[in-house]
Design a protein around this nucleic acid. Sequence first.
DNA 1: CTTTTCTCCTGTATGC
DNA 2: TGCATACAGGAGAAAA
Length: 292
Amino acid sequence: MPELPEVEVVRRGLLDHVVGRHITRAAITGLRVARRHVAGPEDLADRVSGTTVTAASRRGKYLWLVLDGDEALIIHLGMSGQMLVKPGDAPREKHCHAAFDFADDGPQLRFVDQRTFGGLALSPLGTDGIPDAVRHIAPDPFEPVFDQVSVVRRMKARESAVKRALLDQSLVSGIGNIYADEALWRARVHGERVCASLTKPVLSRVLDHAREVMAEALTQGGTSFDALYVNVNGASGYFDRSLHAYGRDGTPCDRCGARMRREQFMNRSSFSCPACQPRPRTSRTAMAPRLP
DNA sequence: CTTTTCTCCTGTATGC
DNA sequence: TGCATACAGGAGAAAA
C-alpha cells in the first residue's frame, strides 16, 4: 500500500525521531528481511552498529538512513512494511524483523512487515546522495532533478499502456496502483490508452495530476506519526475519503455521476469512470494478445 | 535491447 | 462452523 506520500510520512518520522542518534546494536531476525543485502543479515547488523544516523532520505518508494555520512541503510516497505519507534520494553510485534537500539537509551526503531515484501540492505552512498542500490530507480516528480519534458518524451515513444508507464519505476518513481488510478481519473484518461497515441500535453497533464494528488495525500497524511508510533496504514487510510477512483466501483463518478467501473489490468484492479475515461478503440489497445 | 509475466508473502474477506 | 479460494500489490527475476 505505501506509495510515495506514505513513504514520505515515514521519512519525516525518521527525521524527527532517529536522525542524529547513535546506533549501538541491531538485531535482524530471519533471512528474508535482509535478502537484498548480499553479505547477509549478520553483516548488516555488524556494520550498522556503532554508526550515527546523519540523514533520512527518499526517492520514490525507496527510503534510506544515511549512516556516518557515507553509507545508506536502504529501507523498502514493500506492501506492508512499517518503521515503528517503540520503547525497548514494549512487546515485540508478531512480524518484527529488525530492531535497532541507540546510545541515548531512547526508544527502539523497529522494522515490522507482515507480508515480507519489504526489506533492508546496506549500500554505498554516491556523491549525488543516491545509494548505488537505488540508482536503477528514476527520480520522483518532487525531485529537483525530475525532468518532466524528458519523461514525456520517453512516454511518447512507448507503445505500452499509459498506466503501465506510470507504474514503471525506472521511468518515474513513487506512483503505485492507487495514485495511478487517481491521476488518470483526474486527467480523464483510460489507463489502457497507448502512450504513443496520446499527445505530449496530455501525457504531461497526467504527470501533473500524479504529482498533485500525491502532494494532497501528503498534506493529509502528515499527522500520522505521533511521538512513539509510525503508522503507515494510518496515512493511506486517512486519504481514503478523498479518493475519486480507487476502490470506488459501483458508486457514482464524483464528476459526472456515471457508475464507476472496476477492470482487471496487469493482474491488478483498475478503477475508472466509463463516461469520463472511455476505453481506447480496439484498433489500438495495449497488450494485444501475442500469438505463438 | 524492450516489454511482459511470474513470483514472493500472509491477513482478511468471501463463498460453499 | 469450517474449509477453500480470491485478493491485496511493489519490484525484481525470468521469459518472450
